[in-house]
Design a binder for these strands. Structure first.
Lengths: 207, 207, 207, 207
DNA sequence: GATGAATGAGTGTTCATTCAT
DNA sequence: CATGAATGAACACTCATTCAT
């Protein structure tokens, strides 16, 4: 049991180094040697835990998938729509912020690696969209939101969150990057809520 | 002058091959040899027109920047807000569709190449956001839209368009990918217009 | 004494695994790990019994040398020449057959490892040739065979036996591979006996 | 045409270096780097002419096969049996001598590489045996040799030639290695001719 | 003694770039 | 200008060997 723990630690240690190097250099430019150095092991050691370099990347995708699934909020019926929406947006912004490295590491390969693309979109992005649809559809049923086409609106919302996060990360000089996350959440909630509410009069105000 | 034309053609021919190969394989996996083959020239010839492989990529970024700038719609004061918004969204969706290859080619390197990131975000994404802000602020001034924080809302809108486009391209099985672009535009216009309109009563309806 | 026996068993167990893996993959492609696995021990254990991978090979050569020496028939004066020759050929064919693995294992390295070559040729092939010379020279002295140059004829005979054995092993589709060993012996005895007999009239016939 | 010649030369140059290095170190120990150095080219250049290291080996096998086929003597009806046999043996000894390097290069891999084994035995050894059978069967028909089982006798003869050649090459201290080739031929002809002649009285004598 | 995780030197192969023709 | 053969640095990966447990 002690050895199993040790092996798991080693694996984690290597994966963490891989995240760092992939995020910094991109998958292709990253060298196994550098990952090994950053993990404090010899290059050969990596191959005791992963079949090859690509398996490192796939393992990172797995990690992201697991985290994305684990962190999806449970629907919370007690809150009013606006507060719930705020909760969700805040949560997703945090998810991106906390998994920045992982996302950057994958971002370099998603576009040309079919398997990875399928994993990333199919098991990270689409589930987030689907869960978001479920949250909101419940509010539609309750009459708190107007009926709308979730397969269009939710990608639009998720994409919005993503681009805002990306700008904060990649373009620190943009005005968007400078804003406190809480202000972003507040403004977005107002925007999305107005866009979807069933009773136009019921204005929402963050506090 | 004939030779200059010829040279320009050769250059264009090479760039087109580069777009194709970069989009397919990603920048790193793409080989100069394959680009040359696809352009119908010898590998050495490429180096008569570009200093190195990376210059090809930067030239593609230039192309995208120029196209992004050229295709930005002129503000169109005669249309009502909804129709104008529809025009803009339709136009941006088309831009992504028509520059798919270019965008994919760049997408693989944006995340780790600082200069490229600066170009892409600074000269493609941010101008789109800025122009969008200008369009909408005009409507705000005219009282047709409520006042809002453009540096948050416009990235959200642009990000939405991007993710929808990306899903259509990368995840053909997602429900979003199946929809006619026109339906997407219609639903988005309603969503964004409701989110921003100044007189909640004034519903918009596509026709 | 019990431990010594155990150690000897372990050694033998490892050597048997080595024969199998070397014969299958060749010395260079064989990995210590696989030999260990086949022997049911850990890789490190092999190094308690052998200094390195090459020592395994040399130990196998030793084994072959010992077996080759042990199995050389004693000259048998009572038999007539033909029967004696048959006995010897049958015996050498059997030796090759029974030590197939060992021979294959060594065959991959003999050609480039000087020490091994010296051992194999000097202590396996040449002794067989020498013993064969002794057998036959005795018959020459007795007037049962004509006088001949043993340093040419015996290599020719031994080489014949070897190639026939090799073809049976490596080229199962060749007509030679299909024949019962006994027919081979019979035909070879006739061939060699005619080639060497002193009284051409005295035909030999196997029975 | 000039370039084709040049390319063919380069190819030959590389193959010759490969023969040398493979023969010296064996296929596995030989490094592409060393072959390149010996050929006077950069390592990468080798890959312009051969897909990989193994293709070098297969190309060598091809060369040997071609040479073996090209050098098979035409049957020569005018000569008496003994002289003809002498001609053939002398020729095969020369073939081995002249293709020593090639044979050594292949000898290291034949035992574990199925494709190579099939090529070597199927297209070098078996054809030699078959052609030898054809030569001798003609003499049988003419009544100059007794009838015999060629599928046994010819491998025995070819094997004899091979082992004698191998001993000369690998075991220079053996008495066999010291002999002039012509003496070997003479003794072997006598041995084989006596073994196969139809009229025992007709002794053959080389001169 | 036995283990097997860790090591790191060494290899085949790729590919951006050069330059003689 | 155009070519494409040649280059050689760089990289992923293997595996004999060691040594702490």
């Amino acid at each position: 049991m002690a050895e199993q723990q040790e092996a798991a630690d080693r694996r984690k240690q290597i994966l963490e180094a891989a995240v760092a190097v992939f995020a910094e250099r991109g998958y292709q430019r990253a060298t196994v040697k550098e990952i090994a150095a950053r993990a404090g092991v010899a290059p050969g050691t990596i191959y005791l835990y992963f079949r090859n370099k690509r398996e490192l990347l796939l393992a990172l995708a797995e990690t992201l998938i697991r985290r994305a699934a684990d962190t999806l909020l449970a629907p919370c019926a007690e809150l009013d729509v606006g507060s719930h929406l705020a909760l969700i947006l805040r949560d997703r912004l945090r998810f991106v912020r906390e998994n920045q490295g992982l996302l950057r590491a994958l971002a370099t390969e998603i576009w040309t690696d079919r398997e990875l693309a399928a994993q990333f979109f199919g098991e990270v992005i689409l589930p987030v969209i689907r869960t978001g649809s479920a949250y909101t559809q419940e509010r539609v049923v309750r009459g708190e939101l107007r009926s709308f086409r979730a397969e269009i609106i939710l990608p639009a919302v998720v994409g919005g969150i993503l681009l805002i996060s990306v700008l904060r990360l990649m373009s620190p000089n943009s005005p968007t990057a400078a804003l406190p996350e809480e202000e972003v959440v507040e403004e977005l909630v107002r925007f999305y809520l107005y866009g979807l509410r069933s009773h136009p009069e019921a204005q929402w105000d963050a506090r």
